[in-house]
Nucleic acid binder design. Structure first.
Lengths: 338, 338
DNA sequence: GCATGAATTGAAAACGATTTGGCTAACGAG
DNA sequence: CTCGTTAGCCAAATCGTTTTCAATTCATGC
């Protein structure tokens, strides 16, 4: 059923029907009602591609996905959907190429030129992220989930990674721990830097020098959590507490602690960052995991919302949001054992 | 840069340029080369929306996403991307509505009519899944990841859930276990039924009656894994082995076993299904987890491939694939303890 | 030297909507 | 009774491609 045909059935012109459906003011309320009603009855729906061609709007928001199958991603997208479904806006997944490669840049360029999306949401930027510069130069509305120091205006939403880790570390210090290890994310991303800054600043404020041997970086996997924690704990001067970057890392850390016959929360205190997953909760771990917490799903919803605002013309400069992070103390942290 | 303008720069007609770029045979090799080269140099790219309108092809495949943020999803999509990126086909995420609701049906209807996707990939169908009937009726190419008994032709790719669980259960029986519990997925989905069938048939073949009290169903979460396993093990006649539906369930089961002072692989044997995640591996659990294994990522890649075939006109009837599932024995399974 | 067919190329008509710029009728005001 | 204004509607142009149909060129065989 096309507009022309539908209009004929109604005894109206395509113009009027189009206007009625798009809510323009110059059509009488009574006609509008009739058109709307008949559209439902006859099942008329404007052809998206025609609308897109004519208006230049894509009706879709692109979200960049890492190729490693990050477990955060589904949760973030589910959050996006919450906001975007009622808006009738599509979610387009943009698989990342190698970020260091020129291909990645080429990919964005093509994406923008092809007008398949009205805005882009990207994750885990680096302090000097060429993608941001490019998207800005191309004039594509985009929202950064995370932050960048790059000298280009960009909208962003981030959590207070630095503050979160600082508080977590400070809490461990309060408990008497002085040798505190840290398992961070892949080096390069701003969030990893911020976390390290938070960690260091907490130590410094107590006059403790950070031991480079107690800092490790890598993907947020159970395996690396285990390997790093084992390596820390097998040192001659092992840490008494570990700050881990994710729930998966924490699983590995727990395992490492246990594997050495030690007890989490007693011999070794553990704090991790929890993005709040429906399938794995810090509360349910044994012992329950003290964690810095921030909902990935909520971030997805809000990012989608902000992207919509960008599309509607809000200036990127007005969109800069830092979310506070909760610190939830549970059983995995305890006073240092002498 | 539009086609018209680009063509003029080349001193050719839009027709020829279009043909050259789309690889039609009636344009000379030399012109084609020139056009291709200049297109890169001048940065001409056809407007996707115009192409879509004209050709009726959307250049995108839709994939249905549950709203619960299933952890499998990112992995599956990463797999899809592997196949779809080189094909220059977009991935559109279709958030699911309530499947029992009419809204879900309405959603598909609109999706199809709006011509936003050329094919749809859906997951976890039920034996009698109205969505399949609808998509078939609407004439939309679609691929089912999983299976359905519905009497409507549909293309599908599934793993051998029944065989996997049968073998897993049989292996436990071989080890002398006779009281074997099972933690299944949400009731209703075909895969859950198949798994239960596999479980029951293994028991029956040894003349053992399935105890309904040893079968539980629910989302694949750590929490439910724990709760179900606890409930099982606290019975007066506890099972000596547990078959779990996912890695997350297995985490919960491990926790439950430990919480009762029991030992996985010694007091209680555990087998789970492993979709192979980069961030959590059965091999690394402690004790390492015996598992039925099938790569979710590979499934995503293959599903994307099959969807492309459907688009190219291959009959759904020719696309029916069952993947065998590996059974990998590790430390979490051992002979029954008397 | 000419008809024939193959090899290339173009002009123009779609695709299905939105939107600009009229047009008509009705209503008050003068 | 006319004129200006407004509400409501419509015709036609447009978005940027693809594709049908027709035209042109060119070599080939006679």
């Amino acid at each position: 059923m096309k507009l022309k045909e539908f209009a004929k059935q109604l005894g109206l012109s395509p113009t009027t029907v189009s206007r009625a459906l798009s809510g323009y003011p110059e059509v009488s309320e009574i006609t509008r009602a009739r058109v709307a009603e008949e559209a439902v009855r006859l099942g008329y729906r404007p052809n998206v591609n025609a609308v897109r061609l004519k208006t230049g709007r894509a009706g879709a928001i692109g979200v960049v996905m890492g190729r490693a199958g990050e477990f955060h991603f589904a949760e973030f997208m589910a959050g996006m959907a919450e906001r975007l479904v009622p808006e009738d806006t599509d979610i387009l997944v943009i698989p990342m190429a190698d970020p260091d490669d020129d291909k990645e840049m080429e990919l964005y360029r093509r994406l923008v030129e092809s007008q398949r999306v009205d805005a882009i949401i990207m994750h885990s930027p680096r302090p000097d992220d060429a993608r941001i510069a490019l998207l800005h130069a191309l004039g594509m509305p985009f929202l950064v989930h995370g932050r960048s120091d790059i000298d280009v205006p960009h909208a962003w939403l981030d959590i207070d990674n630095e503050g979160a880790v600082r508080r977590a570390t400070a809490h461990l210090l309060d408990l008497g721990h002085t040798r505190i290890a840290m398992i961070n994310g892949r080096p390069g991303a701003t969030y990893a830097l911020h976390r390290e800054t938070g960690y260091r600043s907490a130590l410094v404020s107590r006059g403790i020098a950070a031991d480079p041997g107690l800092i490790a970086s890598g993907n947020f996997t159970d395996e690396l959590g285990f390997r790093f924690a084992r390596a820390f704990l097998e040192r001659s001067d092992p840490p008494t507490a570990i700050v881990a970057g994710s729930m998966m890392s924490a699983l590995g850390v727990y395992r490492a602690v246990r594997s050495l016959g030690l007890q989490v929360g007693v011999d070794v205190s553990v704090i991790a960052h929890d993005d709040v997953f429906p399938y794995l909760s810090a509360d349910n771990m044994a012992p329950s995991l003290s964690a810095t917490r921030s909902s990935m799903r909520a971030a997805g919803t809000r990012c989608a919302d902000l992207a919509l605002q960008l599309i509607r013309g809000v200036s990127p400069l007005e969109i800069q949001e830092v979310w506070p992070v909760e610190l939830i103390l549970r059983e995995s942290t305890g006073p240092v054992r002498r």
